[in-house]
Amino acid sequence: MQLVLAAVAAVVASSGAARAEVVDVQPNGFEVRHALHLAVPPDKAYAALVDIGRWWSPDHTFSGDSANLSIEPKAGGCFCEALKDGGSVAHMRVVFVAPGKMLRLEGALGPLQTLGVTGHLAFALKPQDGGADLVLTYDVGGYAKDGFAGWATPVDHVLGLQMARLKAYAETGKP
């Protein structure tokens, strides 16, 4: 898995297509940020973004199948995952929607759900050079017994992988 993440990071870095960083880490939280250019207009980028089951990595789901993921793009909507036998996971709640411009969600992704934390995940789209610039920020805060120093970098890497997959899906139809 780390080899895959390193390969993705190397490809993204060498293409100049994305900028990623752990912006800040404090004892009570952290912020990560990813910026990339999509060679599609903002409305098409947004449509791809909310079609999350088509591009999110199955390696970062509870069910092992990205097709079980969905985002209901309206305030109060759910970024959810269906599990077999009728189970489900609410990954995040949609708090702001401006189609083609902005999607904001709140909640704790993946293993962060086991901590006393919440997060704010924002996807901002802006028209640029015949396509769209996308900036993702994820701010996480709350209580983690050993602090957040060990969480920021892995979360940054996973979100970087997801952004590379989103870019590929938006531009080619395949993650």
Rank of each mutant, 00 (worst) to 15 (best):
residue 1 M to R: 10
residue 3 L to M: 13
residue 3 L to T: 13
residue 3 L to D: 14
residue 6 A to D: 09
residue 9 A to I: 03
residue 13 A to L: 07
residue 13 A to P: 12
residue 14 S to W: 15
residue 19 R to V: 09
residue 21 E to P: 03
residue 21 E to T: 09
residue 27 P to D: 01
residue 29 G to P: 02
residue 29 G to Y: 00
residue 29 G to L: 01
residue 31 E to G: 07
residue 31 E to N: 06
residue 39 A to W: 13
residue 39 A to D: 13
residue 40 V to K: 05
residue 40 V to F: 02
residue 40 V to S: 05
residue 41 P to M: 05
residue 42 P to R: 03
residue 45 A to Y: 08
residue 47 A to R: 06
residue 47 A to M: 11
residue 48 A to E: 02
residue 49 L to I: 02
residue 51 D to K: 07
residue 51 D to R: 09
residue 53 G to W: 03
residue 56 W to L: 00
residue 57 S to L: 15
residue 58 P to A: 03
residue 59 D to T: 07
residue 59 D to Q: 15
residue 59 D to E: 14
residue 60 H to F: 12
residue 61 T to M: 05
residue 63 S to L: 04
residue 63 S to G: 05
residue 64 G to Q: 11
residue 66 S to H: 12
residue 66 S to T: 11
residue 68 N to C: 15
residue 71 I to E: 00
residue 72 E to T: 12
residue 73 P to M: 05
residue 75 A to I: 12
residue 75 A to F: 15
residue 77 G to S: 12
residue 79 F to R: 01
residue 79 F to A: 02
residue 79 F to P: 03
residue 84 K to C: 09
residue 86 G to Q: 07
residue 87 G to M: 11
residue 87 G to D: 10
residue 87 G to C: 11
residue 89 V to L: 03
residue 91 H to Y: 13
residue 92 M to C: 10
residue 92 M to F: 02
residue 94 V to D: 03
residue 94 V to T: 02
residue 95 V to P: 08
residue 97 V to F: 08
residue 97 V to Y: 07
residue 99 P to H: 06
residue 99 P to V: 07
residue 101 K to R: 15
residue 102 M to D: 11
residue 104 R to Y: 13
residue 104 R to F: 07
residue 105 L to S: 09
residue 106 E to R: 05
residue 106 E to F: 11
residue 106 E to W: 06
residue 107 G to L: 01
residue 111 P to A: 07
residue 113 Q to H: 06
residue 118 T to R: 01
residue 118 T to M: 05
residue 119 G to H: 00
residue 121 L to W: 04
residue 121 L to T: 04
residue 124 A to V: 14
residue 126 K to L: 13
residue 127 P to E: 03
residue 129 D to L: 15
residue 130 G to E: 08
residue 131 G to A: 08
residue 132 A to Q: 05
residue 133 D to W: 12
residue 133 D to M: 10
residue 136 L to M: 09
residue 137 T to K: 04
residue 137 T to Q: 03
residue 138 Y to N: 02
residue 138 Y to G: 03
residue 139 D to K: 01
residue 140 V to F: 00
residue 141 G to C: 10
residue 142 G to D: 06
residue 143 Y to N: 14
residue 145 K to H: 15
residue 145 K to L: 08
residue 150 G to S: 10
residue 150 G to W: 07
residue 150 G to A: 05
residue 152 A to M: 05
residue 152 A to R: 00
residue 153 T to P: 02
residue 153 T to E: 11
residue 154 P to V: 04
residue 154 P to K: 04
residue 155 V to W: 05
residue 158 V to D: 02
residue 161 L to E: 03
residue 164 A to I: 10
residue 165 R to C: 11
residue 165 R to M: 11
residue 167 K to N: 09
residue 168 A to L: 14
residue 169 Y to P: 08
residue 170 A to H: 08
residue 171 E to Y: 14
residue 171 E to N: 10
residue 172 T to R: 11
residue 174 K to Y: 15
